[in-house]
Design a protein around this nucleic acid. Sequence first.
DNA 1: CGTCGGGTTGAGTCCATTCAACTTCGGTGG
DNA 2: CCACCGAAGTTGAATGGACTCAACCCGACG
Lengths: 239, 239
Amino acid sequence: MLEALYLQLSTHDDLSDSERSLLAKTIGSQREFAEGEDLVSEGSQPAFSTLLLDGFAARYKYLENGSRQFTALHIAGDFVDLHAFLLKTLDHGILALSPCKVALADHAKLKHITEIEAHLTRLLWLDTLVDGAIHREWIVSMGRRSKLAHLAYLFCELFTRLKVVQRTEGMSFHLPLTQAELADVLGLSTVHMNRVMQSLRRSGAADWVQHTVHILDWNKLVDLADFDPTYLSLFREAR
Amino acid sequence: MLEALYLQLSTHDDLSDSERSLLAKTIGSQREFAEGEDLVSEGSQPAFSTLLLDGFAARYKYLENGSRQFTALHIAGDFVDLHAFLLKTLDHGILALSPCKVALADHAKLKHITEIEAHLTRLLWLDTLVDGAIHREWIVSMGRRSKLAHLAYLFCELFTRLKVVQRTEGMSFHLPLTQAELADVLGLSTVHMNRVMQSLRRSGAADWVQHTVHILDWNKLVDLADFDPTYLSLFREAR
DNA sequence: CGTCGGGTTGAGTCCATTCAACTTCGGTGG
DNA sequence: CCACCGAAGTTGAATGGACTCAACCCGACG
């Protein structure tokens, strides 16, 4: 059940059997959410953190004027609100973009891990640090990349992350969003999102049909995006 | 010497004397950097983390086309690359925007803290989580706020953070950047940065002369920015 | 006194937005 | 069975925002 989490953590460093079983004991009840439901709502102070077992979810924030911005996309194996364990109050909501299966980890048990298992604590900490590294890349994309490059970058990142948790098929992956939702990732209007997508299609680097992204020319896509996966820390090292 | 760090950490939760002295023992040599120098260079694998004691610094990333984006601004008391302790390889550089005084914390000693002091570990972890929360707000600003609102937001954030470490004077604070550097924060051209700044001045909410920001009407600035400081976790709570 | 970095201004172009219309497709009820 | 409906995608036209390029101002400094 926790395979995807194990895959993610063990990409960064060795994960011992005792650590795996401690994690398993920390994870409590399982739950399912329908597409469009909030996994966690804005401003809440949950007593547990949510581990995404399957599906796609997004962190979002609404502004006064009603516009919405996604600040992160989450996939299987992501601890979508591990940070709430210490932040206490969640400053954003988390939305299921597809049907989602999740498991809940009690904050008290997470705290217990920090008391007795320093190495596992560091791995969980690292998990939130990679999250931050992804945020930084998004900032770079929004500030200085062209919209086409930003989109290409997003596809590179998602493909790389999904591959870690074995959710790719060849050079394709499932991406069950609408163009309007993607627009809220890139900070675009839906109309322009549509045009940027057409421009990516015309480039021949990738395509997106029936909720599936097909990468037609990886090198071209990486080149368009100026993509460098270093920030994902995908190498095993003592932490 | 570590006053600013203590001020920041104790904003989130009580910081005991023994924790303070452990931190003090962790911090090694002090160093000074001139404006324009790199505190840490991109792609490096430092064996220590850098605590900013005084001055302004920025994390930056260059793209292939030569454009630059700042992904964070750092002030006194910020552990500018605490995350490098676990990420190992730094995916970005850190630049001194003013003369900077820093202190270095050996990674081995930080690791030692995680082995013996769970509560302090959580506070340091939290420090990096607040960092992430700030990133998220920047993403929202870049994606969905108007440029004027984005600038107003930045001033609100900086004022709030600087107040914690007692670097404000009344409703003013020192901000030793050029407009070109601010443009690299907001993701704008220098020309447009200049025009947005004029627009902010005309609004009467704030002004920026001789490297000093004067907040003339806090409520109006907050309103322009749609600013809510929750994400900075500025309340003391058991963590 | 000349130079240089930083700030400011104007003009022209291109990018992204809004608004509105139209298509396609799957679902649903008469 | 098919007519209708709504959600998602696509297109066109007009507006306004942001960029580039270029010029110019100004104060600090050698």
